[in-house]
């Protein structure tokens, strides 16, 4: 019979190490951890766990007791970064905290913390010296952070919004179900569903005026708006799908039929116009007609000629 023996106490220590590398553990947590493990059948005392902690410490795992919990302060994966990596990491951190500003994504900031804690000795020294990181003038922002936070909160609350946007001398009022914020260059945009006009819209948050939250909840949760278009010829052969697109029909030599979901209508029109005669909107009919009307609007600019 094949030998299936396992170093059991070793396995228990490994399980504790695995859990400690993810979060602090109390003695009770450790007891529960090994008791819950079906593979381990013995009953354990606190003394046993002290022994395990001593063993881990002896091999260089820095474990401290803080508020009745054991915390591992060093990490097992030590990483080495080049000077350029360090400068980019500094820059990313700044971008994440000051530009991206998605404070709700604490996991991202936590992850960057972990990366910083995992640096090897040599990298730690150089990391302390390179305090600035890459400087990139375009990232000196035009984004008002308070405004970003406000709109982030609107997205989280999931309540409908009513606001105005200036279009030339006209003030246009919108009722929107906010979905998410999008970062493009130095601008932050609000993406939302314009439920009165049944289309997704993208607004530069800086342009949004007189914004107020309505008491109604957004209803779009599972709402998806599809627009189908066909690209052909050369474009069909080199088309790179966007994240909100899927191919629904392919003719190897001639065309691709693409389904696009929830893209802001203005941005979509601008993009499809760029494709010229190699693109045609198929469905829905309303969007197709709107597109033709939009081309007429451009042609009207040249009427006097």
């Amino acid at each position: 019979m094949k030998n299936k023996k396992i170093a059991d106490s070793g396995l228990r220590i490994l399980e504790i190490l695995k859990a400690l590398s993810k979060s602090p553990l109390s003695m009770g947590d450790m007891l529960k951890l090994v008791a819950d493990n079906e593979e381990i059948e013995t009953v354990y005392t606190r003394e046993t766990f002290n022994k395990y902690i001593n063993t881990l410490r002896l091999l260089g795992f820095e474990i401290h007791k803080v508020d009745n919990k054991y915390v591992m302060t060093n990490t097992i994966n030590l990483i080495h970064l080049t000077n350029e990596n360090i400068r980019v990491l500094r820059f990313l951190r700044r971008y994440a905290e000051k530009v991206y500003l998605d404070k709700t994504n604490t996991d991202l900031i936590d992850f960057l913390d972990i990366v910083e804690k995992s640096l090897d000795e040599d990298t730690v020294e150089r990391y302390a010296k390179h305090r600035r990181g890459i400087r990139f003038k375009d990232f000196e922002l035009r984004i008002p952070s308070e405004l970003v936070k406000k709109f982030q909160m609107y997205c989280e609350k999931n309540l409908k919004l009513k606001f105005c946007v200036n279009d030339g001398n006209l003030k246009i009022e919108y009722c929107i179900e906010p979905r998410k914020l999008k970062y493009e260059k130095e601008f932050v945009y609000l993406i939302g569903y314009d439920y009165l006009n049944d289309e997704f819209k993208k607004f530069r948050i800086k342009d949004i005026k007189q914004c107020r939250q309505l008491p109604q909840k957004s209803s779009f949760v599972n709402y998806t708006k599809f627009i189908t278009y066909r690209v052909k010829n050369r474009l069909a052969k080199s088309y790179v799908l966007k994240e909100n697109e899927t191919v629904i029909n392919i003719d190897n030599s001639d065309y691709l039929v693409i389904s696009n979901t929830n893209e802001d209508m203005d941005s979509l029109f601008y993009r499809l116009l760029r494709y010229g005669e190699n693109c045609e909107i198929l469905y829905p009919k309303k969007v197709r007609d709107d597109f033709v009307a939009y081309i007429d609007k451009i042609l009207d600019l040249y009427d006097e000629q």
Partner: peptide, 22 residues
């Protein structure tokens, strides 16, 4: 090995958004 803080889906999503923005 599993003895590391794992990159979770939300952090990954954040990293991707950062990269797209850049």
């Amino acid at each position: 090995h599993p003895f590391t803080t794992e990159l979770n889906e939300k952090a990954l999503d954040g990293l991707q958004k950062l990269r797209d923005g850049i």
